[in-house]
Write a protein that binds this DNA or RNA. Structure first.
Lengths: 213, 213
DNA sequence: GGAGGCGTGGAACGTGTGTTCTGAATCGGT
DNA sequence: ACCGATTCAGAACACACGTTCCACGCCTCC
């Protein structure tokens, strides 16, 4: 009576999820055993190790109930971890990771935001802002902006744009003016400047800001 | 060397919160013991029972790590519901509920913020800001500010203050100047004004801001 | 058929962990 | 100063729990 390899593991995973939802603390090995009608604790341990190897959970050894879901957005709550992938400033280059599939585990810094801040948007990442060029848009030096990957924005939107000729990335409002594009700071003491539309590629659209406290 | 009754319990509560944030599972009694530098497990148990009696946590007996936060926002997962208790603006009165024991269930509107925004502070409430008098502090019309109840603030802090003679509440930076107090807007086009220190009572200290998207 | 890998059963071991008990220290009010 | 209530210290107990070990059935491949 063999079951497919992942079926039992999937069942364990679901049990952990519902248990977590119900109790707000993770189940013990023996909770899983009785909850999934498994005959032995060693079988549970065996499958938990497999799940950990697959990266679906994380465990702390020798600690009871030390099971953490890492698969579907951590815990079901209203909070989301967003990776801070770098710093953005006028006049400085910024290397962005590949747009798709940013792995939160590869980024050592993350910010926690509520789901309503990203409103269901996918692949949101975050950038630390350097400088006060967007101060009038209430974005200060040191703030963290949430960005949604895209390659085009509507007129007047705030976006992170890459300028090929000068190899730099900057954060401005973007206005199309024929074949040229106007990059407008939100700072009364700064002047807008214009670049060729072909020289510019949009990296991401502004979604929200998190104040650095 | 006696500490105030709730100080140790507050510390335990904060520790549980941060532990939960870091590990995604609740701490054991001995985790709390070492984390809060408490000498005995029985003391932890004693205070946990007190916290449970006050309704701030929930526990399952005979089960390890079965501590659930119920006080501020249910789950410890990083998101907290903060009640929006009113609107604050220069020149308009505002009725604040009793400082202590604001019941989130009595307020129909709440904002969801991450726990790191309130950093373990207790009794945080929120106010919707009307007007642009604090625009230079990056607080705009329509934004929601998080406030911590207090009756005194350090010089230069932003606070919600009530002026008895004019029966109004306003949100400004507060500077003591002898027997008078200077209320300083954060808007270059506005002038500060002064009130008698006796006429002023501090309602809450600025903790953070949530942008209205 | 034999070897090896994989999933399973059952049991035992060591320790992590909640609980409880006994006293002492501290606090608050009369 | 006295006394009850509260809080704290330290130890011990009982068991919940993660871990490990060994044996067995099942499958695949040579």
């Amino acid at each position: 009576m063999k079951k497919s390899r992942s079926e039992k593991q999937q069942r364990i995973l679901d049990f952990i999820r519902t248990f977590l939802e119900k109790h707000d603390y993770p189940p013990s090995i023996r909770d899983i055993q009785s909850g999934c009608e498994i005959s032995s604790t060693s079988v549970v341990d065996y499958n938990l190790k497999a799940l950990e190897a697959r990266g679906l959970i994380r465990r702390d050894r020798e600690v009871s109930r030390a099971i953490q879901l890492v698969g579907t957005g951590g815990r079901g709550g209203g909070a989301v971890e967003v990776p801070v992938v770098g710093t953005i400033a006028a006049g400085e280059p910024l290397a962005l990771p590949s747009q798709e599939g940013i792995d939160p585990r590869q980024v050592d810094e993350t910010v926690t935001v509520t789901q309503e801040m990203i409103r269901g948007r996918d692949q949101v990442f975050a950038l630390r802002v350097r400088g006060t060029s967007m101060i009038d848009a209430l974005i200060n030096d040191g703030d963290i902006v949430l960005m949604e990957p895209t390659d085009s924005v509507a007129d007047g939107e705030m976006a992170a744009v890459y300028l090929g000729s000068s190899n730099e990335t900057t954060f401005k409002r973007v206005y199309r003016e024929g074949k040229r594009v106007r990059l407008q700071p939100e700072n009364a003491t700064m002047q807008p400047f214009h670049v060729d539309a072909d020289d510019l590629s949009v990296q991401g659209r502004f979604v929200g800001v998190v104040r650095a406290l």
